[in-house]
Design a protein around this nucleic acid. Structure first.
Lengths: 159, 159
DNA sequence: AAATTCGCAGAATAATATACGGAAAAATCT
DNA sequence: AGATTTTTCCGTATATTATTCTGCGAATTT
């Protein structure tokens, strides 16, 4: 069927990935012009990049202000759970909470950093209550006052 | 031409936005099935949502591990710059750095939180040197050890 | 009752998907 | 080393599918 081994990416592959991570709605024809290939060649490369897992998914980025998500927070949390199974349960709960946009294990004083979107202070309060019920012992919340930059673009063309 | 006043979104608009922020590559036909409309009706709604600014852009999310970005960091920074014009210059510089995925003004001890993607320790060191040259006085770096969740999806369907 | 705001159906345009042939590079075999 | 086979990858051509435009009608508003 198709090769199981992932070949290394050439310059054109990286160029296509870079175009897609900035403007995913472009047609194969437009991308083909930019990378100097025919539309079917671009198409088959994109399908390959998808099947090999370089492209995870395509999303529309929405305007959080216009949709009422005025309360973006970064929350550092720690837990006193140490049993592996219980930790998995905690992480699954965090992943399933739609307000949690990101959850990262970090070096430093706290166990996790959460990026959390809420509509108002009441929703935030409810969210923090939910955290407490999950076995979170230490919480430090920082409010985002202004978004200077928000990007999903990796600097893959710089090297 | 077209209405300047933004009408409030109805249930169907929100449903379409929610579908698109999860799977932007779906055809109008598939979305139409899910929201019980005809494909042209879906199309005109999406065009309206774009022109009214609810949809900012469409992007492909790439696999940062497979592309070699093993070093994701969260960096808190402070500056002793207080002059407005100089601050703008600093922020412009941060926005233009491709390693900086996010930059947020936060409440708390530090002025900004950066989310930064680098390929290795050398690149990170070079990046921090660049920060120092921009007039950053205080830096606190946390390494991301593991990504538990990464999402761009706002919880617009929950309310 | 007129005007406006949607929707759908149908048709024109455009994009995606697939099959096929050929050129260039890589691998294999004298 | 040189020739032949194999593989890879592109482009052209074509079929399928999707997008987009237009016209018309129903329902609601003014």
């Amino acid at each position: 069927m198709e090769s199981i081994v992932n070949k290394v990416l050439d310059q054109t592959d990286v160029h296509i990935l870079d175009i897609l991570q900035k403007e995913a709605q472009l047609s194969n024809t437009e991308i083909a012009k930019q990378v100097n290939l025919s539309p079917p060649a671009v198409h088959s490369r994109i399908k390959r990049l998808e099947s090999e897992g370089y492209i995870i998914r395509q999303v529309a980025i929405l305007n959080q202000e216009k949709l009422g998500f005025d309360l973006l927070c970064y929350i550092f949390i720690s837990t006193d759970i140490h049993q592996a199974e219980e930790l998995h349960r905690l992480e699954r709960a965090l992943v399933e909470m739609p307000e949690v946009l990101e959850c990262q294990c970090l070096t430093g004083e706290y166990d996790y950093l959460l990026k959390v979107a809420n509509k108002n202070r009441k929703d935030l309060q409810d969210f923090i209550r939910k955290l407490n019920k999950l076995g979170i012992t230490k919480i430090q919340t920082s409010l985002a006052l202004r978004e200077v930059k928000y990007s999903t673009v990796l600097p893959i063309m710089e090297t």
